[in-house]
Simulated assay, not measured.
Amino acid sequence: MLVLLVLCLVPVPPQLPSTGWDKSNHALAFAVLAFLGNRAWPGRTAPVLLGLLAYGGLIEVLQSFTPDRFAEWGDLLADGIGLVLGEAVAQLLWRHVPRRA
């Protein structure tokens, strides 16, 4: 989460790994967070996803205070889509992986 925060607030660096589209970068980052959150706090889906969406909102608010970045509702929407996709992948994957005792 800290790395994501830094990447979202620093001036646009020359070459970072990217999907090629800002919105898909947001979706991918938040899908990973949702996937990890699913494993870290199993059974607490709603609080984890709502907390991560609030984190995405915080990032957008902080970006509005930077000279090189700006807040966009589309970014927050992409974050939300990524959260849903990450949770769906986690649910599908963990359904087929046996749990350890």
Score class of each variant (00 low, 15 high):
T19Y: 09
A54F: 07
G82A: 07
G86M: 07
G57H: 06
L77Y: 10
Q15W: 14
T19L: 15
I81E: 02
L16Y: 14
H96K: 14
R39Q: 08
G37P: 00
A71W: 04
P14A: 15
I81V: 15
Q15S: 13
P14L: 14
Y55R: 01
L92K: 11
L33D: 05
E87Y: 11
D79C: 09
P17I: 12
V3G: 08
L52S: 06
E72G: 01
L93S: 13
L49C: 05
A78Y: 01
S24K: 05
W21M: 14
R39A: 13
H26T: 09
L2H: 13
H26K: 10
T19N: 08
C8I: 02
P13D: 07
A46E: 01
L77K: 02
C8W: 01
L77D: 01
R44V: 00
G43L: 00
L9F: 11
P14T: 13
G80H: 09
G86Q: 11
P98N: 13
A29K: 05
A29Q: 07
A88S: 12
R44W: 02
R100G: 15
A54P: 11
L76Q: 10
L50I: 08
F35N: 02
G43I: 04
V32C: 12
A27M: 12
W94L: 14
A88H: 08
D68C: 04
W21H: 12
S24Y: 06
P17M: 14
P42S: 02
R44Q: 08
L2S: 09
P47M: 00
I59V: 14
L93R: 08
K23F: 05
L53Q: 05
C8V: 02
R100K: 09
S64A: 14
N38S: 13
Q63I: 05
E87A: 13
T45Q: 02
A31M: 09
Y55D: 01
A71T: 00
H96M: 14
V61Q: 02
E87T: 13
A101Q: 11
L9V: 09
L83M: 10
F65V: 04
T66H: 00
T19S: 14
L62I: 07
N25A: 13
L76M: 06
L83R: 09
A34F: 01
Q91E: 12
N38Y: 12
A29L: 07
L85K: 08
P67Q: 10
A29E: 03
V84R: 05
G43P: 00
H96F: 15
R100H: 12
L28N: 05
L77P: 00
L7K: 00
L53W: 15
P11D: 09
S18D: 10
V10A: 07
E72N: 04
A78W: 01
V32A: 15
P11R: 10
